[in-house]
Nucleic acid binder design. Structure first.
Length: 270
DNA sequence: ATGGTCGGTCACCGA
């Protein structure tokens, strides 16, 4: 089974490109982030025409996540328990940043971690609290094949950005954010792409970052040990940053061998 | 040159 994660930065603007890529890349399940629309605005038809069913979670023009799959999805949930909200004005609102589905016995989360905006901004505290609660749940998930897939808005290592000196007073590389990322690894989760594919996953539209090769590695697939055992390959499709009207992020693809999963129904032979 | 561009939607916010 081939799974992928991609911050598409508006699914309506890029639906043609996304579906073309899905078919060309022989992807079974795609976790999307930043769909930037409500569920009633989602372009389901174009996915369905290509054989993909979509479960979406979007409440307004910001954020939004979805999972497209050509294999059956079960146990779909549209947030995690006690997911923190953000108070732009007035009461905190739980945003459309997380959803999960189980495909072929593998639990897959599509996550759009809050950006953080600036050091000292309330949005950074929100980001850290959001990750803290998610990690509390992840503690209980380690014995199942499960992956946290998405835009983490964290660059775990200095070499995950083009010039660490340019990030001296920035989010994404701060120690609290990196510590939040490492929390998942301490629970036993593995960045299953790191040792299999090099390169960035995001290049800002501003300042000609793509043309200058100045990107960031902030999109990840973090798998539990039972998930990591299934992984047979991974790649970052940086070619998707080129061409007409690209997203500022590119797809991250992981191949898993669901056949190696132990089948409880097989006859026991001693 | 401490910026530069895109989305959303319609005067700006968010990344």
């Amino acid at each position: 089974m081939r799974v992928a994660t991609w911050n598409v930065n508006s699914v309506r603007t890029r639906v043609g490109r996304i579906v073309d890529w899905l078919e060309r890349s022989d992807v079974d399940v795609l976790a999307m982030q930043e769909i930037k629309c409500r569920v009633d605005q989602f372009p389901y038809e174009q996915f369905e025409a290509a054989g993909y069913h979509v479960e979406a979670h979007g409440t307004n023009q910001w954020n939004g996540v979805a999972i497209a799959s050509r294999l059956p999805m079960v146990d779909v949930v549209r947030q995690f328990d006690d997911q923190p909200g953000y108070a732009n004005t007035g009461e905190p609102v739980v945003e459309a940043r997380a959803m999960a589905a189980t495909v072929e016995g593998v639990r897959l989360w599509s996550l759009y971690v809050p950006n953080g905006r600036d050091l000292g901004h309330p949005h950074l505290a929100y980001k850290l609290e959001w990750l803290r609660i998610l990690a509390e749940h992840a503690k209980t998930w380690q014995r199942m094949p499960l992956a946290l897939m998405g835009d983490f808005n964290i660059a775990p290592f200095d070499h995950d950005v083009w010039d660490i000196a340019a990030f001296a007073e920035s989010t994404h590389v701060s120690e609290p954010e990196r510590e939040a990322f490492r929390t998942f690894e301490r629970l036993g989760m593995v960045d299953v792409v790191r040792d299999r594919a090099a390169g960035y996953t995001y290049w800002d539209y501003k300042a000609g970052r793509w043309q200058k090769g100045e990107g960031m590695r902030i999109d990840f697939v973090l798998g539990t040990a039972p998930f990591a055992e299934l992984v047979t390959g991974a790649r970052i499709d940086s070619g998707e940053r080129a061409g007409d009207a690209p997203s500022d992020h590119v797809p991250v693809v992981v191949d898993i061998d669901v056949e190696t999963e132990l089948d409880d129904d097989r006859p026991m032979i001693f």
